[in-house]
Structure formats: structure tokens, C-alpha cells
């Protein structure tokens, strides 16, 4: 087998510059999970169907299992780990998913939240149908989507209210 080169990449992940040497065949999701140890981004399929691997690049949702790490060289990537504010307070979507029981096993959740963040950037007040359409690339096997729709609606209204969603201090609060 012929020798194959590795490539050097440099990108910004959750606001922090990161670098690495990767085989060209390394997918962005593997670079994030294995090289950067950002394991919040998941892999749920091998045919680009499930969206568990969704991250954003410049705010646009993409499937990181279907993008080479080398293609993301120079990109501005955000993963679920980058959603909280610097002070640790939750993003409105995280708050919405928690408040509305938008997750059960939590495996699809990071991808759902990242896909929903693309929606809310384009549409501040989505209808239920628009929400359902916007998460078509994300499969959840646990929730039947009912509460995910409520969670995203809740997040949208939090964002519209301008409040950076507060973190409750106690789960019973």
C-alpha cells in the first residue's frame, strides 16, 4: 500500500484555536471526538442519516460525520460543549430541552440542539411545522419529538424575551 500523507489543520472550535495532524480520511467528527476529546458530538449512523453528529460551522448546522477534518481547516466550529456562556449559564436551547423534557437518553440531544440553533438563527419565532421540518435531519428514538418541539419553542421564546436563559440553582426550583 502506498504511503499516504497526513495533513496539518488549524481551526477554531468553540472559540479556541485548535490544531492537529490528520489522515485525510479522518472525519471532522472523529477529529472532534478522538483528537480534541469533545465527545458531546455523537455518531449514530454510517449513512449520514441521523444527525447525532451535528455541529455548526459559522452558525450553519452540518453533519460532522460527512465532512473531512481537512475540509474544516480554517473553519469556525461550534459543538455542544461551546453552547454554554463563559459564566456557565445555559444557552436558551439547553434550558428549553431541560425544562420541557426534550431528552431521554440524551444521545441525540447535542445534535438536536445544534440543528435547532441553526433554525433559531434564521427564524426567531418558528411554528411547530417549521420546527419539525428543521430537525428532519436528526433522528430521536426516545421522545417521539413531541417534547423536542416544545423545547425548541420554549427556547425561541426565551431568546425573543432577550433573557440569556438563567441556570436554575436547584432542580426542584
Amino acid at each position: 500500500m502506498a504511503e499516504h500523507m497526513t495533513e496539518h489543520i488549524a481551526l477554531v472550535v468553540n472559540g479556541t484555536p485548535r490544531e492537529g495532524d490528520v489522515e485525510p480520511r479522518r472525519m471532522l467528527v472523529q477529529f472532534l471526538r478522538e483528537d480534541l476529546e469533545l465527545t458531546g458530538t455523537h455518531v449514530g449512523c454510517d449513512t449520514s442519516q441521523c444527525g447525532a453528529c451535528t455541529v455548526t460551522i459559522d452558525g450553519m448546522a452540518i453533519k460532522s460525520c460527512t465532512m473531512l477534518a481537512v475540509q474544516a481547516d480554517g473553519a469556525n466550529v461550534k459543538t455542544i460543549e461551546g453552547m454554554q456562556a463563559a459564566d456557565g449559564s445555559l444557552h436558551a436551547l439547553q434550558e428549553g430541552f431541560w425544562a420541557k423534557h426534550g431528552l431521554q437518553c440524551g444521545f441525540c440531544t447535542p445534535g438536536m440542539i445544534m440543528a435547532a440553533s441553526d433554525l433559531l438563527a434564521r427564524n426567531a419565532d418558528p411554528t411547530d411545522d417549521e420546527i419539525r421540518h428543521a430537525i428532519e435531519g436528526n433522528i430521536c428514538r426516545c421522545t417521539g419529538y413531541h417534547n423536542i418541539v416544545l423545547a425548541i419553542r420554549e427556547a425561541a421564546s426565551l431568546v425573543r424575551a432577550g433573557a440569556s436563559a438563567p441556570t436554575p440553582t436547584s432542580i426542584t426550583a
Partner: peptide
């Protein structure tokens, strides 16, 4: 356009 793939696919 809105029904080709999903938003992630349409973004790429």
C-alpha cells in the same frame, strides 16, 4: 429546495 435532504445536507 426545502425538501432536498435536510438542513445539514443543504448547508453543504
Amino acid at each position: 429546495l426545502p425538501d432536498i435532504g435536510d438542513v445539514q445536507v443543504r448547508n453543504r
